[in-house]
Nucleic acid binder design. Sequence first.
DNA 1: CCGACGCTGTACCGATCGGTACAGGTCCGC
DNA 2: GCGGACCTGTACCGATCGGTACAGCGTCGG
Lengths: 185, 185
Amino acid sequence: MTKPTGARAAAIPALAEVFREHGYAGASLALLGERAGLGKGSLYHAFPGGKAEMADAVLDSIGAWFEAEIYSALRDDPDPHAAIRRMLSETDAYFRSGRRVCLVGAFALSDGRDRFAERIAGYFAAWRDALAGALHRAGRAEAEILAEDAVLSIQGGLVLARALDDPDVFGRLLGRLERRLCAAP
Amino acid sequence: MTKPTGARAAAIPALAEVFREHGYAGASLALLGERAGLGKGSLYHAFPGGKAEMADAVLDSIGAWFEAEIYSALRDDPDPHAAIRRMLSETDAYFRSGRRVCLVGAFALSDGRDRFAERIAGYFAAWRDALAGALHRAGRAEAEILAEDAVLSIQGGLVLARALDDPDVFGRLLGRLERRLCAAP
DNA sequence: CCGACGCTGTACCGATCGGTACAGGTCCGC
DNA sequence: GCGGACCTGTACCGATCGGTACAGCGTCGG
């Protein structure tokens, strides 16, 4: 039932979790293989490019998920406020209400920044631009500024929630964002 | 002219820079020693506890700097708005207008979170609480919420500035923060 | 029934990891 | 001039790193 590349796709979520928790440098092949349930042989069969290709695949997968679940609605939904609310609730679910960290943000901060710079920049730029478009369609002034501030706040919320070990920080932020982003024009 | 522990103190800024750029796991002893201008022997003489003690010392040094330059003024300055403005300009300088990353935030996101959890939490909690006190003294309602949002935004601003390789993101954020934090009560 | 192919475990590679041991050097009070 | 405390470079440790090679395996089409 699985395509030839099925093992690859199946392994990606586990690999993502390891990169998320340990960073690029900290994610060892031993750990990656163990958590993916794959021996080193299988791992290198599915990802001939090694660790870098695994990280590439994980970033691709994350980018595709956000594109499909969040950005596209922000761009195309005729009701921009609905798209924004959907963004907030999907974001809440994706980051497990602040208990989970943003892999792209973590990569941006430390190791792997240079290696994956374009992909990282693209991820955030797409988010900011899609959100700015929705805000613009909703008739808000300074949509770009508002969007930049929202994207940045989400990242900061994840950092602070993790640092204080208090997921509510993230929940409170999302509440504030809904008020800020869905206010009357 | 240097105290017995002079080499230790002198090495800390260089060590901090390496941890900042490579994370805890990514900062190797070879790199640490090279950048500090110290051989392995000297490094372990100054920091018998090894890498963990180096990171401890770096975190202590950062905490002390923020306490002296920012938190204490937020707590004690009779003019809370002046203290807040000072916080913003010192923050701008410290993070080189967004070109530099927050080591504590980076540690919080990936490796070293568990190892340094209390210290990381303390750093952010002190910032948030000191700022909330200043806002309260300035007569602002919901000072705690405002403070939490500001601290989180600064972290997010650093993440996004780094991710987009665009320091202006951080500068724009600081401008917004000044307006938000120093608005009329 | 068989060879080809896709997949997997395992052994192994050189490099590097964090950390230790220690021989010598430097510099001080005496 | 001397002894000793402090400091430092270097050799070395076992473990693990990312990555490779390959033999064995089951599963197919023919």
